[in-house]
Design a protein around this nucleic acid. Structure first.
Length: 298
DNA sequence: CGAATTTGACCTGCGC
DNA sequence: GCGCAGGTCAAATTCG
């Protein structure tokens, strides 16, 4: 994933990432169908790359590093690794503290740190609902480049030729406009969560709302397993992240319509402000129209 | 005034 | 062994 020690990436990852970071394709003249075919093919590769990234992120650290100090410990005697789940969510712009991803648990902030590759500080929380609860939560904002890498933006940028630019598209939203958050939950709650009656399902396909506070408006969650299940929409009985007591599904990716909409908004904003892309698109449409007009009608 | 948050210092693991 | 970066601690500060 990054260069800070995650050296045990599966061999498939680097191969899968090549299409993302490799040089742009040769600018050969091609028809719109060819372009669409190429983009579809690339989308397939990017989907595979995303799978590899997610699998890499969920690789338990203990497997990647075998500390000599712990080498003597009998494997069977080791305590079970804390369960790790990653949740991507979009905070509401109205949230004053956009770095606090709200869910049904009560969290106490115990630290904040500016990390190297992200201008937004990372926040650290502990479960404050039960003093003995070991669950921790890290919340950070996604940078724009992380967003573009994580989802399908590179494909479209490639299509629009914008990837050749050294500088990002001219129109850039303010940093504060980026409300995509990533929360990492570690451990399992050893207490009951609040009574289910506190939750009111207003629309199972979009979000759950809790009296007093709300769950993440939209989430993609990734568990520490190689297997993944993709569920569109939030099931009515879906529990908040790290609710292991309920036997949460392992290796689950939940994509809600709101999260998808947020991504599409980002994409539309990016492309509509990319004059080069608009110009090429208009040109391609004009070419297509010209092809359909018989040359002998006049 | 107590609880929650902020923030600089300190600790720890990892790569070189 | 050293330096860097992430994670945690705890005193100071803020807020209701």
């Amino acid at each position: 994933m990054d260069s800070n020690g995650e050296c045990s990436s599966p061999p498939t990852l680097s191969a899968a990432l090549l299409p993302l970071f490799g040089p742009p394709p040769e600018p050969l003249p091609e028809s719109l169908e060819d372009k669409l075919r190429r983009v579809s093919e690339e989308n397939r590769r990017l989907a595979a790359a995303l799978d590899a990234i997610l699998a890499d992120r969920s690789t338990p650290r203990a497997l990647a590093t075998s500390s000599p100090s712990r080498g003597n410990a009998v494997a069977a005697a080791e305590p079970p690794r804390p369960k790790v789940r990653t949740v991507c969510a979009r905070a509401e712009p109205s949230d004053a503290d956009a770095n606090h991803l709200r869910d049904c648990y009560q969290w106490r902030k115990y630290g904040q740190k500016v990390t190297r590759d992200n201008p937004y500080p990372r926040s650290y929380f502990r479960c404050a609902y039960a003093p003995s609860c070991p669950v921790k939560k890290k919340v950070k904002r996604l940078t724009r480049s992380e967003l573009q890498q994580l989802f399908f933006f590179p494909s479209v940028l490639l299509f629009s030729n914008a990837v050749k630019r050294r500088t990002p598209p001219q129109v850039q939203r303010s940093a504060d406009d980026n409300l995509m958050l990533v929360a990492t939950y570690e451990g399992e709650h050893n207490h009951e969560q609040r009574a289910q009656s506190e939750y009111v399902v207003t629309d199972a396909s979009t979000s759950l709302h809790q009296a007093g506070s709300s769950l993440p408006r939209s989430i993609i969650s990734i568990d520490s397993s190689g297997r993944k299940k993709i569920t569109i929409g939030l099931a009515a009985d879906q529990r908040p992240p790290a609710d292991s007591n309920a036997g949460a599904a392992v290796g689950e990716i939940i994509v809600t319509p709101e999260f998808r909409k947020a991504l599409v908004d980002e994409l539309v904003n990016l492309l509509t402000n990319d004059s080069e892309f608009v110009e090429k698109l208009a040109s391609a449409v004009a070419d297509r129209v010209m092809e359909r007009i018989p040359g002998h009608i006049f």
